[in-house]
């Protein structure tokens, strides 16, 4: 009955009908990147836009490999387009090799070699007030960095804490914590990690390294970067070897001006498990 179709559908139905049409998938290739956009419905019947970005690379390989690269696909892949098919090839989540470091901290072989180069400490009669090194405070390499400021801040904090301890009630759950800071439980394995945010776009790893190396040995440093441009995304994670160093870094770097911006430094939060 064609007549039935001529009735004006209600606006609610129209929306339903609109959802039925998916925009066609598109593929754009520009400056070494291939961007594939497609639309589909997820499990809740909601429209989802999927954007996949591929980097196109050129590689120089041996003749036999290059020849094999020209082979056409066969079997179940015969109808696949050039490039990885998302149905069979995906990039999984980032994983890291977990190094088992039971005895690593105390006696690394390269540390031992460095120790040999240092003059024996018994001959040294002076000590730097800033970094406890065996040089005059005047010549301290960390003089202009945060360690020096951290020292003064620490002294102020200590005085403050004394006052606070005398006349303020501290609930047992937060006793022993730095007030005002939300610390993850000590048992977590990345308690030495801090998050530095509000970095400028032009910050590079070396800048961050300069910023934090004064506080103690750094185990790992990660600067979030925009995939396409390589610019900094504005935050970085630093894993210290020791928790005390990390705490020191937070205390003195939080609110510190860097590159016309004010840094925000805090403990790295545990990833949200969902």
């Amino acid at each position: 009955m064609p007549v039935a179709e001529e009735f004006q559908a209600s606006w609610a139905d129209e929306v339903e009908i609109d959802q039925g049409v998916l925009p066609p998938p598109s593929e754009v290739v520009e400056n070494g990147l291939k961007i594939v956009t497609e639309y589909k419905y997820d499990n809740d019947n909601k429209k989802v836009k999927i954007v996949r970005t591929y980097k196109i690379e050129k590689r120089v390989v041996s003749k036999s490999i290059a020849k094999r690269k020209t082979w056409s696909k066969f079997g179940d892949s015969a109808s696949d387009k050039p490039g990885p098919n998302p149905a069979t090839t995906n990039v999984a989540e980032d994983v890291f090799m977990q190094f088992i470091t039971s005895k690593e901290e105390s006696q690394r072989p390269d540390d031992g070699e460095l120790d040999g180069l240092k003059p024996p400490s018994s001959n040294v009669i002076f000590k730097c007030r800033t970094c406890q090194g065996d040089h005059l405070t005047l010549y301290c390499p960390f003089k202009h960095t945060q360690i020096a400021q951290a020292k003064t801040a620490e002294a102020a904090k200590a005085a403050e804490a004394k006052v606070a301890a005398s006349n303020k009630y501290i609930p047992p759950s937060s006793a022993g914590r730095i007030p005002g800071r939300d610390q993850p439980p000590v048992s977590r394995e990345d308690v030495t990690a801090i998050r530095i945010s509000n970095l400028s776009n032009f910050a590079v790893e070396a800048d961050i390294d300069d910023l934090v190396k004064g506080f103690g040995p750094v185990h790992k440093l990660y600067l979030a970067k925009e995939k396409s441009t390589g610019h900094c995304k504005g935050f970085a994670y630093v894993h210290f070897k020791f928790r005390a160093d990390a705490a020191k870094a937070i205390q003195s770097l939080n609110g510190h001006g860097y590159d016309h911006l004010i840094l925000n430094v805090e403990w790295s939060k545990p990833p949200q498990n969902n």
Partner: peptide
């Protein structure tokens, strides 16, 4: 029942042996 062969560099499937 189908062995697969892949390009190891980008994970693209070259084919299946049916």
């Amino acid at each position: 029942s189908k062995p697969n062969v892949w390009w190891s560099l980008n994970g693209e499937r070259l084919g299946t042996f049916n």
